[in-house]
């Protein structure tokens, strides 16, 4: 599904990595590893089309992603470092607005079910500014539960700020997505066991220029 060919990344004057290539098929889990500042977030942002690579090409189903931006966006779900959660909105409003802006409006019942599944049932009407860091992360992650049909998930540090039950829940969600033929690319510094038939690991440090 996703092909990455000889990718290079520059931040300021520094070349972070070069010659990075891989292929990702449906059902595959890709763990992007590397020390702080190695360019993990930059790589994920490039894969989303938010950043233009210094060199190389990214293809989705054979076509460069830059040539099919809106179609590609429809097959991609990205959760970045920032939660994209508005302080002024409640958990329910946040989830529904985020889905509507993404072009995938959901009904109130669907949104409520997702929030309940992620363990925010008793905090649905509370403004997000009163939620803890982990609860805000859960609001952002609730989008995953509504996006099982989207083939490619790109998750930047999805496990940060989550407690053990939430980490386990997220791992099960990812497993279900992989079993359904979806692909997941993620970064993490935590040891989380995700059962997958095809687990790959890329260490960005290996592609750093000497």
């Amino acid at each position: 599904m996703l092909e990455v060919d000889q990718l290079a990344c520059m931040r300021g004057d520094a070349l972070l990595f070069r010659g990075l290539s891989f292929r990702l098929e449906g059902g595959a889990l890709l763990h992007v590893a590397g020390r702080n500042g190695a360019g993990k977030t930059s790589l994920l942002r490039m894969l989303c089309g938010l950043m233009i690579p210094e060199a190389g090409e990214i293809r989705w189903r054979g076509t460069p992603i830059r040539a099919q931006r809106e179609e590609y966006n429809g097959e991609l779900l990205y959760l970045g470092h920032a939660n994209a959660v508005k302080d002024e909105f409640s958990a329910l409003e946040n989830l529904r607005v985020a889905c509507a802006v993404a072009g995938r409006a959901v009904s109130e019942t669907q949104a409520l079910a997702a929030l309940e599944a992620i363990g925010l049932a008793h905090r649905i009407d509370l403004d997000a500014k009163h939620l803890s860091q982990g609860q805000r992360r859960r609001v952002a992650l609730a989008r995953l539960l509504l996006a099982q049909a989207i083939p490619l998930w790109i998750l930047d540090e999805p496990f940060t700020a989550l407690d053990a039950p939430a980490v386990a829940l997220l791992a099960r969600t990812l497993e279900a997505h992989l079993a359904g033929g979806g692909a997941v690319i993620y970064t993490t510094h935590q040891d989380v066991l995700i059962a997958s038939t095809s687990l790959e690991r890329i260490d960005i440090g290996e592609f750093a220029p000497c």
Binding site: C48, G49, L50, N73, L76, Y78, G80, H81, A82, N83, A84, V85, K86, D87, A98, V101, A102
Partner: peptide
């Protein structure tokens, strides 16, 4: 807060 990123996607 990262919402703009999501708008671009």
């Amino acid at each position: 807060d990262g919402t703009l990123e999501q708008m671009l996607l």
